[in-house]
Simulated scan of single mutants.
Amino acid sequence: MAAKIIDGAACGREIRAEVAAETARLAAEGTTPGLAVILVGADPASEVYVRSKTRACHEAGMHDRLIQLPGSVTQDELFGAIDGLNADPEIHGILVQLPLPPHIHPKAVLERVHPSKDVDGFHPLNVGRAFVGDPRGFVPATPAGIMELLRHERIETHGRHVVIVGRSLIVSKPLASLLMAPGPNATVTLTHRHTVDLAQHTRMADILVVAVGKPGLITADMVKPGAAVFDVGTTRVPDEKHAKGYVIKGDVDFDAVAEKAGWITPVPGGVGPMTIAMLLRNTVEAAMRVHHARTKGERRRMGV
């Protein structure tokens, strides 16, 4: 029986509609959520992704700002741009588009963004808060999107075995923490490129998440019948037959695995749209915190 294709685009639209409604409410009360994106250099894939984020901000009614810096920018100059946004009351969320040029240290840059505006959830303080379940921390958008899809599709996680292929701080490790937390209560196995006999692990997964950026890595013989398969991979593969000269491929052999799995996300149209939707949700949450703090301060000054 063919798997149910999980429509991340449709779920993402629902979340973005909710975000737009909350944005309108906040704007009516004097706070318009603002998101700033810093793009360094001219990486084609990054430029496409940034345009999609900017378009999503417009559709949600948010204030957006794009700061484009040359690939030759120094780390101190980049720090200056981030510091300016940290101090800007109109900006509630800041993200620095990765990858960065080799002469700039990503860790130092991500730590420069103030945790209260780190809607990507990459600052060590937010990483730690997310790990221990502290709601003050922002959860990275992609793992948050996968959790939302699990809820949307009513895929049971309680006591289930989740195998994650990949060990990144952006997707795999925060997702493992979210899945093991009280509520989801999943048992999680993290695998990576040094794992011996990867297929032995993936075949045990009730839920399989793949996030390594290697097209076609997961084949049908590596998947348990009826498993829920989430493909996070997005790799440009040259294709002269396509108008753009390339196609986007995931880490899963979609056609073959779809005949064996119970659920599967397509690439594109699966996890990707959820990432942007959850980023917008984090930005609204950041703006809401500022708005509530300001409102509370005004009431205190008025003696209310």
Score class of each variant (00 low, 15 high):
I248N: 08
P266A: 08
A227N: 09
I5N: 01
G137Y: 04
E59I: 06
V165N: 07
A60K: 03
S46F: 04
V209T: 02
R294L: 15
Q68C: 13
R25A: 09
D231S: 07
G213A: 02
P268T: 03
E298Q: 15
A20F: 02
T157S: 06
V212M: 06
M147Y: 01
A28E: 05
T74W: 09
H194Y: 13
V304W: 14
R203E: 04
E298P: 11
R151H: 05
G41C: 03
R136C: 08
R281G: 12
M1I: 10
P106E: 13
P124D: 10
V257A: 05
H105S: 15
L78P: 00
A27K: 06
C11E: 09
L78G: 01
V232Q: 05
V119F: 02
A17V: 07
A9E: 12
Q68M: 13
K296T: 14
G250E: 01
T32E: 00
A277Q: 07
C11Y: 10
P174N: 04
I104V: 09
I264A: 07
T31W: 00
L39F: 00
H292C: 14
E22A: 13
T275S: 14
P124T: 10
E29H: 09
L175K: 04
W263R: 07
V223N: 01
G145S: 01
M278C: 12
L26K: 04
H63A: 12
P70C: 11
R55Y: 12
G216V: 06
A27N: 00
Y246S: 02
M302L: 15
R25N: 06
R25S: 00
E285A: 15
A21N: 03
